[in-house]
Design a protein around this nucleic acid. Structure first.
Lengths: 107, 107
DNA sequence: TAATAATATCAAGATATATTGATTTATTGA
DNA sequence: TCAATAAATCAATATATCTTGATATTATTA
């Protein structure tokens, strides 16, 4: 029950659904790119990433001071179905802004 | 997005997961039996049943003053997967008390 | 080792959701 | 039509979650 509710409550927020969809679409993303692309302040984004990670949807890889988030793999059946459902939602997905590539990451 | 979040937020409560599991296990149930079996006060139960119904998980059939709730059929893929997940949870499921059959429904 | 940059955490206030007891609505049968 | 019963809704309070700005942590590099 506990694990199921943790997955469900992680999904129960429009912001987090958007983050999942964005990372699912664009692949591994660092926090500063997500900030720039999604237009979210850092503490807010960081909080939601943590919730998604602890619910088993995301994994993090650190490279220096950067943190790269990606869809955890493999996902179990329910999480996988949830992600598939999110893939089918008609969402206005913001364009990817790759600050980390160009070195202008100063947020 | 709206519909997805409605499903998810309906699942995001231990009480409602228990109700879904109970009705899934015991079949169509009237509100007074659910009250007796689950030990919930009437307004609380009624609220949760409404949320589950409006999220597309349950349907109601009225017979006189009674209201019988059952799993809506067919369920779409995501709801169906969610229910399957709930079926696999190890939950202490209270025994069914059929007050409506014996006529002792006075709650 | 000190300064800087990226990310994480914390504290306070705002918003949403759950619980309870009281009231209302709807249906049945006298 | 009135009384009784099942179920739904309402209002108040309690609890949980989200947002923001400030602060802390961690890794890099000068």
């Amino acid at each position: 029950m506990e694990v199921f509710l943790k997955s469900v409550s992680a999904l129960n927020d429009e912001t987090r659904v958007l983050i999942l969809r964005f990372i699912d679409t664009n692949g591994e993303s660092c926090v500063c790119d997500l900030q720039a692309s999604l237009g979210m302040i850092q503490s807010r984004l960081s909080r939601h990433l943590k919730i998604l990670k602890e619910a088993g949807f995301l994994r993090v890889e650190r490279k220096g001071t950067w943190a790269y988030y990606s869809i955890r793999s493999p996902l179990d059946r329910f999480r996988s179905e949830a992600l598939e459902e999110i893939r089918c939602l008609s969402i206005e997905l913001p364009a990817l802004k790759k600050l980390s590539d160009t070195g202008e990451c100063k947020i």
